[in-house]
């Protein structure tokens, strides 16, 4: 854990704003991944940016 990681309590309460589905925290990429919406939300300086316009679209590898 570095100082730029999300606070654990924040992680507990966060879900994807679009699908309300669970999020997976990718600490290396500093992203919160919503499989159900196919989006990765950025985390900047430990602050989750839950904006669809800022999210990266996941490539579908299946």
């Amino acid at each position: 854990m570095n100082s730029n990681s999300i606070d654990s309590k924040l992680l507990e309460v966060l879900v994807c704003p679009l699908s309300k589905g669970p999020l997976v925290y990718d600490t290396k990429m500093q992203e919160l991944i919503s499989e159900s919406a196919g989006l990765a939300y950025p985390v900047r300086d430990g602050i989750p940016i839950m904006l669809v316009e800022e999210a990266r679209k996941l490539e579908n590898n299946k």
Binding site: I47, M50, L51, V52
Partner: peptide, 9 residues
Amino acid sequence: IIAEPELFP
């Protein structure tokens, strides 16, 4: 948390 006003995450 930074989020849309009407889309609660």
